[in-house]
Amino acid sequence: MSRIAEVFSKGKAFIPFITAGDPDLSITEILIPAMAEAGADLIEIGIPFSDPVAEGIVIQEADMRALSAGTTTDKIFESVKRIRMKTGVPLAFMTYLNPVFVYGSERFIKNAAECGVDALIVPDLPYEEKEELKPYCSKYGIDLISLIAPTSKERIKTIAAEAEGFVYCVSSMGVTGVRTKINTNIGNMISLVKETKDIPCAIGFGISTPEQAKEMSQYADGVIVGSAIVKLAAKYGTDCVEPICSYVREMKAAIS
């Protein structure tokens, strides 16, 4: 069983996101094992991009902070190698297609696999274009995560049929960021996936409170939280490890 499959077999998964190198990579190296310790079941590591079109202002600013601090893809690979020595928590890289493509798609995916990364999430790589990365992901044993959105409708079955690892269900229209209310019929989206394939589904976009996480976990196998955590990183800077870990504990408890 892959590390990712194992996570979802043990109950509802809490999946936090952080931007690598925000505020700097030495903090990232402490933060990821600490979040795993605090109850994170799978951790998304954002590779910062200059123009993250699927992100709201919170993660846009985190990307800018990380890039200004001199974060590069190579330095992130080095950090993840060291992180892997400290924790066995499943790791997913979340980034845009251009940083992967320009680095060299095969070289990127090979390096990611060698660092112990389990999955890759690329929001600007839709189903129709996945051949850009899929052959290399298969070759090096990395799950290329499929996303479905409230607008996907009849596309959900097509996408689910070829999905691997887990399906990332985008809860709301628009970009990432905290929302007070999620109006989409998530249950319906997820049942369309499950009718097609027995694969875990995790919900992301807009979730920030324990109450929302609890509600979403009724429908899904996992809950993804990004902006709410990145906000803590922005607020506390190099002192962010403890506040983020206490938030992770609270969110994990809410869905357990």
């Binding site: 839709p126 189903y127 996303l147 479905i148 607008t151 409708k153 996408i159 628009g174």
Partner: peptide
């Protein structure tokens, strides 16, 4: 060329 957009926009 191609069609590299988030899933949310694919139907559009």
């Amino acid at each position: 060329g191609g069609q590299f957009v988030p899933e949310t926009l694919m139907n559009a």
